[in-house]
Nucleic acid binder design. Structure first.
Length: 494
RNA sequence: GCCCCCAUCGUCUAGAGGCCUAGGACGCCACCCUUUCAAGGUGGAGAUCAGGGGUUCGAAUCCCCUUGGGGGCACCA
């Protein structure tokens, strides 16, 4: 049978790094083995689920290039795949039917315990240093007793009988795992008193209905797997294979969380990380090719990926390494592509008031040779060359004076440089034409070229670190260079 | 508290009994290149392979124990 895998996010928050990685691994596995990648929305938590988050998650997965073969309808696009709907709140009847079946088989029973009773049980167990578990108060209720409680107006939640014994399975990544049913915490609730189904139940009903063959998910579900296996069996369905991925960790090695790390894919996108880098980085967080290659495009990842090579230990998310990889990928982008991707960031700079005008594609293209290898992220564009698109720059008199120079020398240097630059003229205002006269000037006056260049750099950009000076002067244009040097001379202390 | 999982440089990792006086990458430090900043190049510091027992002629690699870390035990997902 061909392999069927899925990503089943819950729209209770923006697309999370961990969800993205799980989606990626499922996607890589599906594509590698020629299987089917399914997207299912688990929105049964009505309180926390929103359509905004739903859209955010879908957009994020698309952005990453993780396209699914089967999934829910979105924005007018019909659902894809033979198992629609792919949104759990639209599948309520199937959970209801499954619940009725388990009830009829007495594999599940209504539980009328109140939250207070349950809470009291829990406290007592905690005090006795016992693991929390459902005590089974409603497990043996007779039909009459149930009827009496219903007559009292009490609505029962539905609990699944876990029974006893050992549940074992062969995890694709971890090997054989055996868990005693006695450690599951007793009979667990599968349907709330209000009739809405719970995660452990819906996930199994759907995985069964959608014919999933491999369930690839985070290690945090490892301990829950026996519950799922029990449910698959109770439902009379074949149990899929499981693969539990190592967790992505905060620097303190706890499960990656919003509180301690940046977890929203949106934020990475907004900062100018590109999909190739994020995908490449995430793929290598918990898996490796076994070789020393690390810059790998998606098609290459698909070709090399094997679920059996996934690591067992958790991996700390290292933003520095992601940034390095992002730089690697930015350098590999085609000019037109880079220009397109830079545009939203230039617009954002404008909106934020950090630049006054958005440059044309041609302007940006001319800059590419000197900025492409200097961008760790797309968002760094403003910081790098934003001085090009503002009318004036603030020049700090202190930094304007090179370390080995004093104000008078700087004044003389800038004045002489202005003259030399002016002499180059408009027509030949190019890097190759500007450099010789300025070097000659430095030599003639006995200045270190670096000092003279630094004074000019600060005068025209307001900063000490910029792309190569002559390219910068050309990008600025003759008029502005001359004007900015004039202004700089004015701010110099007397 | 109970159950489960995990354990190689600070971090991501290579390593599936001898090729390991443990390799690569990020980060860090030098140097080279160089007008600054990057990029690139070269070199360096950095892991007694968590510790202890076995098995074996031989163990980072296999087994056991200990320790440490993590995850799970909801009418959340």
């Amino acid at each position: 049978m061909t392999s069927r895998v899925r990503i089943a996010p819950s729209p209770t928050g923006p697309l999370h790094i961990g969800t993205a990685r799980t989606a990626l691994y499922n996607f890589l596995h599906a594509r590698h083995v020629g299987g089917t990648f399914i997207l299912r929305l688990e929105d049964t938590d009505q309180v926390r689920s929103t359509v905004e988050f739903e859209k955010d998650i879908l957009d994020g997965l698309h952005w990453l290039g993780l396209d699914w073969d089967e999934g829910p309808e979105v924005a007018g696009e019909p659902a894809r795949g033979p198992h629609a709907p792919y949104r759990q709140m639209e599948r309520l009847p199937s959970y209801e039917a499954a619940a009725q079946r388990l009830l009829a088989l007495d594999m599940a029973y209504p539980c009328y315990c109140t939250p207070e009773e349950l809470e009291a049980d829990r406290k007592a167990q905690e005090a006795a240093k016992q693991p929390p578990r459902y005590v089974g108060r409603c497990a043996r209720l007779t039909v009459d007793e149930r009827r009496a409680r219903e007559a009292d107006g009490r609505r029962g939640a539905l609990r699944f009988r876990v029974g006893e014994g050992i549940v074992a399975f062969d995890d694709l990544i971890r090997g054989r795992v055996e868990i005693d049913v006695a450690n599951l915490g007793g009979d667990f609730v599968i349907v709330r008193a209000d009739g809405t189904p719970l995660y452990h139940f819906t996930v199994v009903v759907d995985d069964a209905a959608m014919e999933m063959t491999d369930v690839i998910r985070g290690e945090d579900h490892l301990s829950n797997t026996p519950k799922h296996i029990l449910l698959f069996r109770a439902l009379g369905h074949e149990v899929p294979r499981f693969a539990h991925l190592p967790l992505i960790l905060n620097p303190d090695r706890t499960k990656m969380s919003k509180r301690k790390s940046q977890t929203a894919i949106d934020d990475y996108i907004a900062q100018g990380f590109i999909r190739e880098a994020l995908v490449n980085y995430l793929a290598l967080l918990g898996w490796s090719t076994g070789t020393e290659e690390e810059i790998l495009p998606l098609d290459e990842l698909i070709e090399r990926f094997d679920i059996k090579d996934v690591h067992k230990g958790g991996a700390v998310f290292d933003r520095e390494r992601l940034e390095w990889m992002n730089g690697q990928w930015i350098r590999r982008l085609d000019p037109d592509d880079l220009i397109d991707r830079l545009r939203p960031f230039l617009e954002a700079e404008k909106v934020a008031g950090r630049i006054e005008r958005i440059p044309s594609d041609e302007e940006v293209r001319a800059l590419l040779p000197v900025i492409q290898e200097r961008l760790p992220t797309l968002g760094a564009i403003g910081d790098l060359v934003g001085f090009l698109w503002v009318s004036d720059v603030d020049v700090d008199p202190q930094t304007l004076v090179p370390k080995r120079w004093d104000p008078p020398t700087t004044r003389a240097g800038l004045a002489a440089a202005r003259e030399a630059i002016d002499a180059v003229g408009d027509v030949s205002f190019e890097a190759d034409e500007l450099e010789p006269p300025l070097r000659a000037l430095a030599e003639e006056r006995g200045w270190k070229a670096g000092d003279l260049f630094m004074a000019i750099r600060v005068a025209v950009t307001g900063r000490t670190a910029t792309p190569p000076l002559f390219d910068t002067l050309v990008a600025l244009g003759r008029e502005r260079v001359l004007a900015r040097i004039d202004r700089a001379i004015e701010v110099l202390p007397a």
